[in-house]
Design a binder for these strands. Structure first.
Lengths: 189, 189
DNA sequence: CGAGTGATGTCACCTGGTGTCATCACTCTA
DNA sequence: TAGAGTGATGACACCAGGTGACATCACTCG
């Protein structure tokens, strides 16, 4: 056991999630979060760069997994197949945190500021995916397009997933969306 | 002639663009922008919701044009064709402001905060496009996918356009990117 | 001429975020 | 075992973004 209460970061995350849910993101001050976690405002900012970032711890794991999914795909896989591999990897991550996904989703949906942060995380994810695709010899523009397509489908599927009445698995919803995109583009006159 | 110096909004925009370029976004305070425009900080915030928004005046026109482009497309147009129509409309807007495009692009590229704002503007644009597509009877998910595809291609083409050594028109670059996406998806095994 | 009116200024205030130094509980070494 | 680190935290002052409330002032209109 350490000299201080351990898990300061996790306590701050839990306090933030609770307060953002209870009284709203805008109405919650960092000082309140810190107090609930038994710490001070200054310490909050030692763990998280800003008031938003506390909700996005974990984005790094998603990125790692999706990139790993692409790296692990068979050499014969098409670009479209790589998008599918990345989405399958995302599915694993999402199912693991399904418990908090809804609450977190509602908080983010309620605040433009948080949506901005989510979007830039997604963009950075797309950059990482594009880089993984280029490593497999895919051209610059094609890699960018494929990466953005992957995150777009992921996002659309995620939205449907957290609100899905039938609680279908993410993987199934994502595969369906991807199939729809394929038809849509193939149907070009 | 009015009682006050007219064009307060435009003066604030010019002052902001100049200062952000000269000394950087983070190093510029709102008070400095206001002073350069002959106004006060309080007045700045009467015209723009925050320090970032001053760079995004005009996003509304782009949205209007792209939606109008979709509305004006022939009834026979495929979903993919509608994406092309929206991109053509964007091309008109971009060529009109080519003069400032590079400067603005460099400022935004230099600041994560501004990139976040750009991303949410793009997302809201995608929402408007999706809505225009649904008005033509296209299904929910297909409309979302098509709208995001349109803004993704627009963004990728825009990036290439502002840095294009040959100064090719936006329309040409966008059409090329769209063609590449088509091939990429068609080549799925 | 006097009552609006609308854009601006003034001022006080809150909160997010940061730099700096103190503190304090524990570890390690002589 | 004393005393020198060390690393997480607290305390405090400060700046800038952002807002509410009220004053001002130039002009318009009846």
């Amino acid at each position: 056991m350490g000299r201080w209460q351990p898990d300061a970061r996790m306590r701050l995350q839990e306090a933030a999630l609770a307060l953002y849910s209870e009284r709203g993101y805008d109405e919650t001050t960092v000082a309140q979060i810190a107090e609930r976690a038994g710490l001070t405002k200054r310490t909050f900012f030692r763990y998280f760069a800003d008031k938003r970032e506390v909700l996005f711890w974990g984005a790094q794991f998603l990125e790692q997994r999706m990139v790993a999914g692409i790296d692990a795909a068979p050499a014969s896989a098409s670009v479209f197949g790589l998008i599918g591999a990345a989405l399958d990897a995302a599915a694993v991550q999402f199912e693991e945190v399904r418990e908090f996904a809804g609450q977190r989703y509602r908080i983010i949906s309620s605040s433009p500021e948080l949506q901005e942060r989510e979007l830039i995380k997604t963009a950075s994810l797309a950059t990482a995916i594009a880089s993984a695709m280029r490593k497999r010899g895919i051209g610059e523009t094609a890699a960018d397009l494929a990466a953005h397509t992957a995150t777009t489908v992921m996002h659309i599927a995620y939205t449907q997933w957290v609100e899905d009445a039938e609680q279908r698995p993410f993987e199934q919803i994502a595969r369906q969306a991807l199939g729809q995109l394929r038809e849509l583009v193939a149907a070009a006159e």
